[in-house]
């Protein structure tokens, strides 16, 4: 089953006054399987955030179609159903928290859906437990750390019981600790609740943990495959201003010097093993 399907999408931001609009996509096609974990990788300004906003009808295609759980995002009647199915988590945790008490904020989405009070209460409690923020339910958000705020934002989305969540660079503003907390939460949601995850990022290490990596460059798909398949194309990544994980970069540098090492070792354990075998051979 497909969770999302993008068919020949074209999109350009409208120009202001006399300035021409900026074209982001000309002909982009992509499908995301239900329950999968897809990382969308790309440099600054490659169109990844624009793509994210297409998935829940914040932006609508200029040409082509975007389907979410079988619904056409251009169909206004389906707007609420689409936004119930696809949750969004944005980069800046401060700018997506509405209320000044954690649990009130998590309740915001379900309240908008018109759910009965006791049901909201149980959804909020469950969502907060899921992201490990239940003890903080009565805290003021501005006193939490970046990672904690972002987890509250995630709880706010899962309280609406979506089928998919699109994360638009959720860790870009966090420190390593916060980044770990948030990534762990995202992986748990995908694994335990079967939520389809689209993770937009420019951190190679985060993308390396996904099931599938889609590399966007200037509105086109430059590479698409498992992390090992994508990251072994080091030359291509360099050309478009990206990099492979350090371990792959190390093997690549050795290959440049004339050796032949595998380029699909994405973590230090595997890479160390490969280097050991190679040194001993």
């Amino acid at each position: 089953m497909e969770a999302m399907r993008v068919e020949h999408l074209s999109y350009s931001y409208p120009g202001v006054d006399d300035t021409p609009g900026v074209s982001v996509f000309e002909d982009l096609s992509l499908t995301v399987e239900q329950g999968s974990f897809v990382a969308v990788l790309g440099g600054n300004g490659c169109g990844k955030s624009t793509l994210a906003k297409q998935f829940n009808a914040i932006l609508l295609p200029c040409g082509g179609k975007v389907y979410v759980c079988g619904m056409d995002t251009a169909d206004e009647e389906k707007l609420i159903s689409i936004r119930r199915s696809v949750g969004m988590v944005f980069q800046n945790p401060d700018n997506q928290i509405v209320a000044n008490v954690v649990e009130e904020d998590v309740a915001f989405g379900p309240e908008n859906l018109g759910i009965a009070s006791p049901a909201i209460r149980s959804r909020v409690d469950q969502a907060l437990k899921q992201v490990g923020m239940y003890e903080y339910r009565e805290h003021a958000p501005h006193l939490l750390s970046g990672g904690q705020k972002q987890r509250v934002a995630i709880a706010g989305v899962i309280a609406m019981a979506p089928k998919c969540i699109v994360f638009d660079e959720p860790t870009a503003m966090l420190d390593p600790q916060g980044r770990r907390e948030v990534l762990q939460t995202i992986h748990t949601l995908n694994r335990e609740k079967g939520i389809t995850v689209v993770l937009i990022t420019h951190h190679m290490e985060e993308a390396a943990q996904a099931q599938r990596v889609v590399v966007l460059h200037k509105g086109n798909i430059a590479a698409d495959g498992t992390p090992a398949q994508v990251f072994s194309q080091v030359a291509l990544l360099h050309e478009i201003g990206l990099a492979a994980p350090e371990t792959v970069e190390l093997c690549y540098a050795l290959n440049e010097a004339g050796f032949a090492l595998p380029l699909d070792r994405l973590d230090s354990e595997e890479c160390g093993q490969a280097l050991y075998d190679w040194v001993k051979a």
């Binding site: 906003k53 609420i80 936004r83 119930r84 969004m88 944005f90 009130e104 915001f108 609406m160």
Partner: peptide, 19 residues
Amino acid sequence: TAMECRCYQGGEGRTKMKL
């Protein structure tokens, strides 16, 4: 944008967690 994503459409049809 974030509020829109969370299905906010004004006070109409809204419920409250804490009655």
